[in-house]
């Protein structure tokens, strides 16, 4: 996992790689929450382009981060997801809580304009 700050949009970009299950979600959650507090970011953008597997634990982790950004007046963006991952995102209704986009630029444009 890689984290970096997009200062212009006050967004923490989280590049997740590999399999996003209950085991991996715990570590991601901890790092993201720590970096949110440290950097003062209000938006989180999850790059799922290199995620090969995701189950409901990934959905739960993203839902939890969406609560945090909402409290800060920000938004969670999810981009680069494969068709299989998009399927469970819409099945769970996560697409109504977060901005689902093809790219970071599209997601930021949509989310930040709507905030």
């Amino acid at each position: 996992m890689e984290l970096y700050l997009s200062g212009k949009y006050r967004a923490l970009v989280v590049r997740v790689a590999g399999e996003l299950d209950h085991h991996a979600a715990a570590g991601i959650k901890e790092s993201v929450d720590r970096e949110m507090a440290r950097t003062g970011a209000v938006n989180i953008a999850f790059d799922l382009g290199a995620v090969t597997f995701m189950d409901s634990s990934g959905i739960g982790m993203i839902m939890g981060r969406s609560k945090i950004t909402s409290a800060l007046g920000g938004r969670v963006i999810v981009y680069g997801a494969s068709d299989n991952i998009k399927r469970i995102i819409s099945m769970s209704g996560l697409n109504r809580l977060v901005t689902v986009a093809e790219s970071l630029e599209d997601g930021l444009k949509e989310a930040v304009c709507n905030v």
């Binding site: 959650k29 189950d55 409901s56 634990s57 959905i59 739960g60 982790m61 839902m63 939890g64 469970i88 099945m91 769970s92 209704g93 996560l94």
Partner: peptide
């Protein structure tokens, strides 16, 4: 039931059985 979780404090989505059924 979709979105029901016995462990909301653990950020569970409550989608486990729904995904299995789908």
């Amino acid at each position: 039931e979709p979105l029901f979780t016995g462990k909301p404090e653990m950020e569970r989505s409550g989608m486990g059985f729904t995904i299995m059924e789908a």
